[in-house]
Design a protein around this nucleic acid. Structure first.
Length: 333
DNA sequence: AAAAGATTCAACCGCTTTCCT
DNA sequence: GAGGAAAGCGGTTGAATCTTT
């Protein structure tokens, strides 16, 4: 893309003696060789020892965002897009946390992708699917978790509809939104929500659908508190039986994933084996009464992924609790 | 073909958090 | 516990590239 500049404001900063601006191939080589031979240490030492006229911070950024060997290159797959939207609905602009769940992708990459592509797409879809109560989810959902969640779920539904015209009926929309809610309910972040209050969702394509999550969902919070890892929840939700596996780290679930049994009678669109190769399905058995619910179930199974490194403890519950604590519907103890 | 506008994305900036002494 | 350094993070910038007129 940009060519490294040899002079001007982006070149060596005489005041700070550090070079700025684009990295030259030579600099990349130096940093790459140093990192491969010596591994990561103090970044300012890396910069110095590798013979780079860069500050440590710049080296760190270059390594993390560009040189790291495990980086995945190229465009985001639809599955990754969906995952990003889903994670963003839960985490807001916590790009590093989102990136941690998308192996090979950097927070910067995801942030750029969100701001350039997804944000724009959702905006366009919103304007073409003009509906009340829709808001720009890109603006800090964490400030109002439930509100952001709902609007983002709407966006996700609209997004899905756009990807698949067969979903473009209001009933499909409702089903699609149910799937989103199921995704949400199955997410380890959600325990802090008190589902007894239920959710009144406005379906963008017209019509209301009142959805109340099963009480067992609220109990999952106990799991995440780390005090009781033996809970096994089960609930019936709008014709979909949802079994909640005992909470365990994803690495422990690797074995379970092999026996995962999610029925899939649908098209490839919903049965993709994720290109996010190192993600594992969690053990999540879903039975469904109809085809559209199968779609919902499949979407849930599909989104119900965790990265290899994902452990329950990684979720910043305290921070999230802070974020949502002002919300009157919610009851977290 | 050229100019203008739009888009992309690498890199910087400044703030916060974490670690070390 | 205080203070400083390093690391981490999200927002923003701006040059290169692409698209449209």
């Amino acid at each position: 893309m940009r060519k490294p500049e040899a002079s001007g404001k982006n070149s060596v900063n005489n005041i700070n003696k550090f070079r700025k601006g684009l990295w030259s191939p030579e600099e990349d080589d130096k940093l790459m060789n140093y990192m491969l031979n010596n591994g990561q240490g103090c970044w300012s030492d890396v910069a110095r020892n590798a013979g780079l006229q860069r500050c440590g911070k710049s080296c760190r950024l270059r390594w993390i965002n560009y040189l790291r060997p495990d980086l995945k290159r190229g465009a985001f797959s639809p599955q990754e897009e969906e995952m990003i939207i889903h994670l963003h609905s839960l985490l807001g602009n916590r790009w590093s946390q989102i990136a941690a769940r998308l192996p090979g992708r950097t927070d910067n990459e995801i942030k750029n992708f969100w701001n350039s592509t997804i944000k724009k797409r959702l905006k366009n879809l919103q304007s073409s699917n003009a509906s009340p109560n829709t808001s720009d989810s890109s603006s800090e959902p964490s400030k109002d978790v439930m509100g952001g969640l709902i609007s983002t779920m709407q966006e996700q539904c609209i997004f899905s509809m756009n990807m698949d015209p067969s979903l473009s009926s209001s009933s499909s929309l409702a089903t699609s939104m149910k799937a989103m809610i199921l995704n949400t309910m199955m997410d380890p972040l959600l325990p802090m929500l008190d589902y007894d209050h239920g959710l009144n969702m406005y379906g963008g394509a017209g019509g209301y659908e009142s959805i109340t999550a099963p009480p067992c969902m609220a109990q999952v919070g106990v799991l995440n508190s780390g005090t009781d890892h033996g809970f096994y929840g089960e609930g019936i939700f709008e014709g979909i039986n949802v079994e909640i596996p005992p909470l365990e780290s994803v690495s422990c679930m690797e074995e379970n994933a092999k026996t995962q049994n999610i029925q899939d009678n649908n098209t490839d669109k919903y049965s993709y084996s994720s290109p996010v190769n190192s993600l594992y399905h969690r053990n999540c058995n879903i039975t469904s009464n109809n085809k559209t619910d199968n779609i919902a179930a499949d979407q849930m199974g599909n989104l119900w992924h965790g990265s290899e490194e994902l452990k329950v403890g990684e979720w910043d519950l305290e921070e999230l609790m802070k974020d949502v604590s002002a919300f009157p519907f919610l009851d977290f103890q």
